[in-house]
Design a protein around this nucleic acid. Structure first.
Lengths: 137, 137
DNA sequence: AGAAATTTGTCCGTATGTATC
DNA sequence: AGATACATACGGACAAATTTC
């Protein structure tokens, strides 16, 4: 019943299993994963635990979820290509708004902002750098 | 990582921060606070701690939370229908690589780069600024 | 066009085990 | 020992988007 999480948590185990199904092709890209209620039945876990498992995959960009629809294995008909050999590095930090950003956000210079930097790269070179700025929420 | 509560308990600190954002206008009245899971991520606290923090604000009548919906900064008003319509402005320009970007891309300082800037905003405020940097091609 | 069913999103309350101060 | 915090897990309920009838 409640929560013996020796060794590996249940949601990790479930995430591993689902990841395997996706990467092995058992759940082809673009198709829907089983619904949350189906997963709760299959793994005999609570919905919260199942959702936690799916959240792991979402974090890994292995799936995308749409409200009222379901969870797809890899983005539905988007970008078309995922470069198998390209990887991303993500970094997040706090910075103080320079005049430019301060004006955009309508805050004072020096206000704290969150910057997330995503670097898309192959082993050889950097493809793209994306910097996202937000107010700390 | 676990539990240094020098002086002030963790949930107090989180409550203080959220209170400041509300009173400072960073979270305007009528808008939803970040979800519990978002707060756990941001403050790297457990759900229990986050809920404890929100409970403090609820006690102070600074927020009201609706089951299945979320937690609002100050009571949700009937007429205050908010435009969920967020819009984006896109801008693209050439710039010269500063030392930081030059190092990332492995080019010399001053090399031309393409910057695309996407600003996500409502009528009221800027939500997010995304800057994408690429080598021109 | 409208009602019902599905599915995901969020919150609630509770519980257990672990770890640190 | 006690207080605080963390991680995990359960079950229930309401909300919202989508699909189906």
């Amino acid at each position: 019943m409640p929560t013996p999480h020796y060794g590996q948590p249940r949601y990790r185990t479930i995430a591993d299993e689902l990841r395997h199904r996706i990467t092995s092709g058992a759940i082809p890209p673009g198709t829907l994963l089983p619904t949350e209620s189906a997963l709760t039945a299959e793994f005999r876990a609570s919905r919260g635990t199942v959702r936690q498992a799916v959240a792991v995959l979402r974090e890994e960009r292995l799936v995308t979820t749409e409200h009222g629809r379901g969870t797809y294995a890899s983005p539905p008909q988007l970008g078309s290509e995922q470069n198998a050999s390209s990887e991303t590095q993500t970094r997040q930090r706090l910075l103080t708004a320079d005049p430019d950003l301060a004006a955009l956000f309508g805050v004072e210079v020096g206000t704290a902002l969150v910057e997330q930097e995503i670097i898309t790269r192959t082993a050889r070179s950097v493809h793209m750098v994306v910097r996202t700025y937000r107010l700390p929420r």
